[in-house]
Design a protein around this nucleic acid. Structure first.
Length: 903
RNA sequence: GGGCGACUAGCUCAGUUGGUUAGAGCGCUCCCCUCACACGGGAGAGGUCAAAGGUUCAAGUCCUUUGUCGCCCACCA
């Protein structure tokens, strides 16, 4: 049975073949009876980029999610993804608006309905593109229009939730100061505003006091807002200004009389100690305005220009207006001075323009009543946040939570289910479009033009997608979900809100655990993000290195706590590992041909039931190397299971890497090579059976991390009729009969001896192909017998012609000796191929290190307090090591001595 | 202004509750194109764990201070 396998692993030939399968079969059809045994694993997937392209940062979520889902699936859990495919929000709207603008179309002229149609059209195209890309990189994702947040089903849920919150008085409409983005043309929630330190100016402006010759000097960073001033405030106990309180100031440029008031909020130390009050354009001033019943004058248009209230400055852009105002003030001699001033400015997260604080009427959600149960749930451990330190961040934010501005002045999103009657502006909030005003009965209603914040509907995701408020089978089985994985930067936007809304509406937590992973950065350290376009393209990386390599690389770097810096070197390393697996498989199948010529088939050697019974014995005992390999496998399985259970992906990756490459390839395969060709066909058959069993277990072990490669190779092994995928097979469990401490210890000795002999070889300047005679000695009979029975392998792997075993001393002269406390090995050779000076140097260095170690240990062991306080185990261990080290030191000194004498 | 994180080999990073000579990958040096694999094999070199102090029988690991870098939060005009 010849198998055509290319020399190097070529992911392009394999991955597209399997991608379709993942999506359709492997993960969504779990064991239907699993939930009866309480084995259910459901996971919430963060929504990918809505702007039409994938990026690597997003791939980390999906890699981790996919690893865990496959792992659970193989362990018999009923698994479910809750695919999050879309946010309804401003990013989407901006993309489409831009596209329309490029075609010369003003979206506002299109009208709302037509605009929505265009967005859907774009989403079908770009969403379909995402799907194709995701399949290309092997992501399992159920992408369908039905799952969009804006689908009719989910829209109904959003409306239901809004109405319920309104009825509970948790949603209210209010006139407040909000963050306004003049580019996005909408309000922003506090979370959507970034702060940045910038060098700015502090303008000191003289306001004449009415009826006097005096001036009151105020300091401001935003002079243009003075057009909307309705007061000047000073501290009530400030003697400098005491006499002015109650008088009027004359607002320059506008010639408007405004009151001079006293308010505690004023900091006497800052600036001049006098503050201009602009209630419509500053948060502090807004509060002050309320306290003193001041008029609010909004001086700006939506897009950041001065409006009619700005008098002569109407029509000017806000920063143009600032310039002009400063010039005019200067011309009138009212600008006292300008000083440098660094301050934090507020920027719109998306457009990076300076946010304008503006008083307006918006919908808000009261957060305190929602936050309290959400805090308690995490405190009680009903939701487990990993890593731990993020818990504190969560608590901090939740305890200082402020009301949430829900409404957005956009066209793309869930429309707010509120209607106003033309006559009295009464508000009617309803699940279905109302026919008359609930207050006055007017039939002249118009719906609120605004939509809800993206995160409002996203916050409902874990239950809205499962059929809530109906108690559907999905909802009953999968809710609360097991886990949410996402990057930590989204904790407040999404995670916290899911928790709050989930608990409020379902009386249950939405997920049992939240794993917050690191951010992926580019080699230059930039944070990869959707909106800034700094992400690497996973499809390109996929083509270059392969999906499995990319996944493995991400997993191996995903240690919690620190950010991931992705580099070509690292990816290449993972690619090399994939290739190593590929070539190990190639070896298995290629050499099998030789064996098969004798009439035995692959089916007989590697059938699933045959593999299940390994390790096989020969001549009444399992060969040492097989016992060792399966013991190592058992350890690795335990390590990987434990690592994945604790979201320690890097440990899992490192564990399988070490096992497959270090143990399986470097030692096991090399060791059993001759046995596979053994003329004793019974011996050969045992070797093959064990090899296939080990390989099969290794593939299953690797599968969650490298699904495509393992799938392909697994299909080359004989399988039971009807089996479809390795993903539906079982995950290796550490079987008790695999544990074998003796084999671990004995083979470690064999390895140590082999390495010591190779080391001597490498020190000698001899032809690499020349086989050398070597000697082994040990005072311990057991040690000698282990080496004796594994002599052949050592001779072969250390390139020897023979290995003599004895109990006596091995002289240094005429060769090189290596020794441990347990044994000595020696390769004899003529003096000219040995660099005596280098050997002496090496010996001295080793002696020095040992002396240091021995001294520190002797000191510690000589300390009575140490002996009385340290655990017995530690003391005993140290004593044993000390004895060994002393013996080694003795041997080293003797060798050095011999060399000195010879010279 | 508050809070958090990082600082370990030339580079990128591991190091779970403090415990016996601190690990990996890449890079580097030397030897090998040995019939699975040069995306490979073999053997090495390389670290006073950012600095100082403290707790302890014992500190990379816990505490304090300092330095450098990064992140998040915050209405001081």
């Amino acid at each position: 049975m010849a198998r055509e396998i290319a020399k190097a692993y070529e992911p392009q030939q394999i991955e597209p073949r399997w991608a379709e399968f993942w999506v359709k079969e492997a993960l969504f059809k779990a064991d239907p009876n699993a939930e009866k045994h309480g084995k259910v694993f459901s996971i919430v997937i963060p929504p990918p980029n809505v702007t039409g392209s994938l990026h690597i940062g997003h791939m980390l979520d999906h890699t981790e999610i996919d690893i865990l889902t496959r792992w659970h699936r193989m362990r018999g859990y009923n698994t479910l993804y809750l695919p999050g495919m879309d946010h309804a929000g401003i990013s989407t709207q901006r993309v489409v608006v831009r596209q329309l603008a490029e075609q010369g179309i003003d979206y506002r002229k299109l009208g709302r309905e037509e605009f929505e149609k265009r967005v859907w059209q774009w989403k079908d195209e770009s969403g379909g593109a995402i799907l194709r890309q995701m399949r290309q990189i092997g992501e399992s994702c159920d992408w369908s229009r039905e799952k969009f947040t804006l689908s009719p089903e989910l829209s109904r849920v959003v409306r239901e939730v809004f109405v319920r919150l309104y009825e509970e008085n948790l949603i209210y409409r209010g006139h407040y100061l909000t963050n306004w983005c003049p580019v996005c043309l909408t309000v922003l929630s506090d979370l959507e505003v970034l702060h940045e330190e910038r060098q700015g100016h502090l303008w000191h402006i003289k306001y004449p006091v009415a009826g006097t010759q005096e001036f009151l000097v105020v300091a401001t960073t935003r002079p243009e807002t003075m057009l909307g001033d309705t007061a000047v405030a000073v501290h009530p106990e400030d003697e400098r200004y005491e006499h002015l309180v109650g008088k009027k100031a004359l607002l320059p440029l506008m010639n408007r009389e405004i009151p001079i008031i006293a308010d505690e909020m004023v900091d006497r130390e800052f600036g001049t100690g006098a503050v201009k009050i602009t209630p419509a354009h500053d948060p502090n001033d807004f509060e002050a305005g309320r306290r003193h019943h001041l008029q609010e004058i909004d001086i700006m248009t939506d897009d950041g220009h001065m409006n009619a209230a700005a008098g002569a400055y109407a029509g000017l852009e806000r920063f143009e207006a600032r310039k002009k105002i400063v010039e005019d003030l200067k011309a009138q001699g009212l600008l006292e001075k300008v000083s440098e001033h660094t301050h934090a400015i507020a920027l719109c997260e998306r457009s990076k323009t300076i946010v304008e604080p503006r008083a307006s009427t918006q919908w808000f959600c009261k957060m305190k009543p929602l936050a309290e149960p959400a805090i308690a749930a995490v405190e009680r451990g009903e939701i487990h946040i990993v890593p731990d330190n993020r818990r504190e961040e969560y608590f901090n934010w939740m305890r200082n939570i402020r009301d949430w501005t829900l409404s957005r002045q956009l066209w793309w999103g869930h429309r707010i289910p509120a209607w106003y009657c033309q006559e009295h502006q009464h508000v009617t909030v309803a699940r279905e479009t109302p026919v008359k005003c609930s207050t006055c009965g007017s039939q002249n209603l118009t719906q609120d033009p605004d939509v809800l914040d993206t995160w409002f509907s996203s916050g409902l995701w874990p239950f809205s997608t499962l059929g809530w408020p109906e108690a559907t089978p999905d909802y009953k089985t999968y809710y609360p979900t097991s886990l949410l994985i996402t990057a930590y930067d989204i904790l407040f936007f999404w995670v916290a809100r899911m928790i709050m809304l989930g608990i409020h509406f379902t009386k249950q937590v939405p997920f049992r655990a939240v794993y917050l992973h690191s951010l992926v950065r580019t080699a230059s350290g930039e944070k990869m993000s959707k909106s800034s376009g700094t992400g690497l393209d996973p499809v390109v990386l996929n083509q270059r290195y392969g999906t499995d390599a990319m996944r493995f690389c991400l997993a191996s770097m995903a240690a919690p706590g620190t950010d991931i810096v992705l580099s070509d070197d690292r990816l290449a390393g993972a690619r090399n590992f994939a290739n190593k697996i590929w070539n190990a498989a190639r070896f298995l199948f290629m050499n099998l041909d030789k064996f098969e010529q004798g009439g035995t088939t692959l089916e007989e050697l590697a059938a699933p039931e045959v593999r299940a019974k390994a390790p096989y014995a020969f001549n009444g005992g399992v060969p040492l190397v097989d016992g060792w390999l399966f013991a190592r496998l058992a350890d690795t399985v335990a390590l990987v299971n434990n690592a994945l259970a604790n979201y320690r992906f890097h440990e899992a990756a490192q564990g399988v890497y070490q096992f497959f490459w270090g143990d399986f390839c470097d030692w096991y395969i090399e060791w059993v090579k001759p046995e596979l060709q053994n003329v004793d066909r019974e011996r050969a058959a045992v070797a093959w059976k064990n090899l296939f069993a080990a390989f099969d277990a290794a593939l299953r072990l690797l599968h969650p991390l490298m699904p495509f490669l393992t799938e392909e190779l697994w299909h080359q092994l004989p399988q039971r009729p009807g089996t479809k995928s390795i993903a539906l097979d079982t995950y290796p469990e550490p079987r008790p009969d695999w544990k074998n401490a003796a084999a671990l210890e004995q083979f470690a000795l064999v390895q140590e001896v082999t390495v010591a002999l190779r080391n001597i070889r490498a020190e000698m300047t001899v032809d690499a192909k020349k086989k050398l005679a070597a000697e082994f000695s040990s005072a311990d009979g057991k040690t000698r017998s282990v080496i004796e029975s594994n002599c052949e392998g050592i001779v072969r792997l250390a390139m020897l012609s023979e290995l003599k075993i004895s109990a006596g001393h091995l002289p240094q002269a005429g060769g090189i000796v290596r020794s441990t406390s347990q044994f000595n090995v020696r390769i004899a050779h003529s003096a000219e191929v040995v660099d005596i000076a280098a050997e002496k140097l090496r010996l001295r260095k080793e002696i020095e290190g040992l002396e240091k170690a021995i001294a520190s240990k002797e000191k510690q062991l000589g300390d009575a307090t140490f002996r009385s306080r340290a655990p017995e185990k530690i003391v005993r261990g140290m004593e044993a090591t000390l004895t060994e080290q002393k013996l080694e030191l003795q041997k080293l000194r003797k060798r050095l001595d011999e060399l000195d004498k010879a010279a």
